[in-house]
Design a protein around this nucleic acid. Structure first.
Length: 597
RNA sequence: GCGCCCAUAGCUCAAUGGAUAGAGCAGCGGACUUCUAAUCCGCAGGUUGUAGGUUCGAGUCCUACUGGGCGCACCA
């Protein structure tokens, strides 16, 4: 056998490594190295990986694509990582990797030094903004998306060694706060918060509870919508709050405190954490200074009594200006967003800002990003991305509602998922061996897995149909299906350890496990793709494919009963690698694996 | 009116311009004295909304049309 001198000895994505080899070959042939692009094969019956560059290069080179393919193959064929290179069809290069190489690669893939996958200069200091929930308004189904997608991305960035911090960025500073103040005032006009002459101190106890707030919010909002006078009052109160009226600030602080406590409870249920709990109010004090400077530099101008930053898109595309100050003197969320960018860039030194926000706010972010760049608040080095996501619909295809037609609270949704999971667990064979506590612990993990996987598996940008009974099933592309596969192999591994069996090294002896090993070697590719496109769904697809491949293998090869000890330890090595990848992928999705199911 | 997005199997969704458009569910037919069958295998199911165009090659890119969703300065 040829020496393995051209092998790849550090953790890398396989298609990147192959790209390098083929790009070099194309360059040697005097062709553009871009043609050396290698992808995972679309014809697994013919190859592991494929390169289509010869087809694309043919016209420019005025050569038969098969001829080019042959030249390329001649250059790379001595590399021992290949077992065969063939030309098929009009000029596809089909690549089959050697077993030896796959085994070598498997060792690298399971070492797990994933923070080295990205070059250090590509790791920009990043902040991820969850486009926060509103104070006083309970989180609903829609919030599941930003929470779960944003959390997955922050885990993924950290896993790859990208410095990232997360900010919930609560909505605590808009007109809705004025509405609530007025609502409390109409119910309890005698509270000291409304007495402009009150000297303090204000009560330390909040006059309202979180459920009061949750009830008042929609009431106040409808009132303001239908009654212009109420709206004016609310807007006036908002302006006074923002201007620093003491009683309003004290009352507002109560709202914030009790809301944050409730939000933290919800997020801890979902196992999601934030580094920063800043709200829009946090940036308020910086706004006057920012506006002054923008006015001085003629970047903000008066239009219809409001202060705006005029902007234009590429190709002179007309885009409405970003409004900073309303004619009544109040600020808008675009104002806060701009001030927020200023702080993130100049105080924290962030170079990449990610916004995980509903896609319907696309225009808003387009305005904010353009304004930030135009005004120099963000220089050209700063990159801002709106990671837009679609809406959650019910099984009727329309925005998700409860049976009564109302908005479903996130809290209720979570317990619904957990209850559903509990029911399914009770139905299965052998459920009686678990006590109630164990069952409810399993149900919690399974329910959450169902919910998160059901969301994350869908393309981030598309709307999707929320079907809890489908998501909680144990069959098909669901969280529980994947958890079950993970639990089963974990149980075999535990038994193997108990029986003091050797785990690894991975050697391909039987051939049944080659497909599985190939799947495992795709892992770095998948991780990088999910990172590059900020797409949690790529992780979901991968762990489903892996779980299914694993189930196939599991049925074919009876590991613990295997008599050939070398084969057995290799299988166990593969199993351990599978578990590592399932566990890691699920961790990145924010899903925890129970001990039993 | 202007702009953005979407249309793929009965349903829910995949498919970095490449070969025979794939999964899951539902349907039908198989495989268990289980390392947890909560699994696996097979069959059936398609004019990729319509009409043109670009390309060696189009579900994918361009144009028009049809149907649906969303957004367009004093809410967030």
């Amino acid at each position: 056998m040829k020496p393995f001198n051209n092998s790849i000895n550090k953790l890398t994505s396989l298609s990147d490594a192959l790209n390098t080899i083929f790009s070099e070959a194309f360059r040697t042939c005097g062709l553009d190295s871009e043609y050396g692009h290698v992808t995972i094969s679309q014809r697994p019956d013919l190859s592991d990986y494929q390169c289509n560059g010869a087809l694309a290069a043919a016209k420019g080179a005025k050569k038969n694509p098969r001829l080019i393919a042959q030249e390329i193959i001649n250059i790379v064929k001595d590399n021992p990582i290949f077992t065969s290179l063939t030309i098929d069809g009009p000029g596809f290069i089909n690549i089959k990797l050697s077993d030896q190489f796959l085994m070598n690669q498997a060792q690298l893939v399971c070492k797990g030094e994933y923070a080295t996958l990205l070059s250090s200069n590509s790791k920009k200091k990043t902040i991820i903004d969850f486009g926060g929930p509103n104070i006083a308004k309970p989180m609903h189904v829609g919030h599941i998306r930003s929470t779960v997608i944003g959390d997955c991305l922050q885990r993924l960035f950290k896993f790859l060694g990208v410095p990232i911090h997360s900010d919930i960025h609560m909505g605590d500073w808009g007109t809705q706060m004025g509405m609530l103040i007025c609502e409390v005032q109409s119910g309890f006009p005698n509270l000291p918060y409304f007495d402009a002459n009150f000297e303090g101190p204000y009560p330390s106890e909040s006059p309202v509870t979180i459920s009061d707030l949750e009830e008042m919010y929609p009431k106040a909002a409808t009132k303001c919508k239908s009654d212009e006078k109420e709206m004016l009052k609310a807007q006036q109160a908002t302006v006074e709050l923002q201007a620093g009226r003491k009683g309003y600030r004290a009352l507002w602080q109560h709202f914030v405190n009790i809301s944050v406590a409730s939000l933290k409870e919800d997020f801890s249920q979902l196992d999601v954490t934030f580094d920063l709990w800043c709200g829009e109010s946090h940036y308020h004090d910086q706004i006057p200074e920012m506006i002054k400077s923008l006015k001085q530099n003629n970047l903000a101008v008066i239009s219809d009594e409001a202060l705006v930053v005029p902007i234009e898109g590429e190709n002179e595309q007309e885009i409405p200006p970003l409004m900073l100050v309303k004619s009544d003197g109040g600020y808008l969320y675009g104002t806060t967003d701009l001030a927020t960018i200023q702080e993130r860039v100049s105080d924290f030194g962030d170079e990449l800002i990610l916004y995980v926000v509903d896609k319907r706010q696309g225009l808003h972010f387009q305005q904010v990003f353009l304004a930030a760049h135009k005004t120099g608040i963000a220089n050209s080095q700063i990159r801002m991305e709106h990671l837009a996501f679609g809406t959650v619909n019910g099984t009727d295809g329309k925005p998700f509602k409860t049976r009564a037609g109302g908005v479903m609270k996130l809290k209720d949704l979570i317990s619904l998922a957990k209850n559903e999971a509990f029911k399914r667990i009770e139905e299965i064979n052998g459920a009686e061996k678990y006590d109630e506590n164990t069952k409810s612990d399993i149900a919690n993990k399974v329910g959450l897995a169902a919910l998160k996987y059901g969301d994350l598996m869908h393309d981030r940008q598309s709307d999707y149909i929320f079907d809890l009974s489908k998501f909680t099933r144990f069959e098909g592309k669901t969280g529980p299906y994947i958890l079950y596969a993970a639990v089963r192999i974990n149980s075999i591994l535990t038994k193997a350890v108990e029986q003091k069996l050797a785990i690894g090294p991975i050697t391909l002896l039987n051939g049944n496990e080659r497909d599985l090993l190939l799947e495992l070697c795709k892992f770095p590719d998948v991780i990088l793709n999910a990172y590059t496109y900020r797409m949690p769904s790529y992780l979901c697809t991968f762990c489903f494919d892996l779980a299914q491949q694993l189930n196939r293998f599991y049925l074919q090869c009876h590991i613990l009963k295997e008599q050939n000890k070398d084969l057995q330890s290799s299988w166990l090595g593969i199993l351990q690698l599978c578990f590592f990848q399932l566990e890691t992928t699920l961790y990145l999705l924010g899903i925890e694996i129970p001990d039993h199911m």
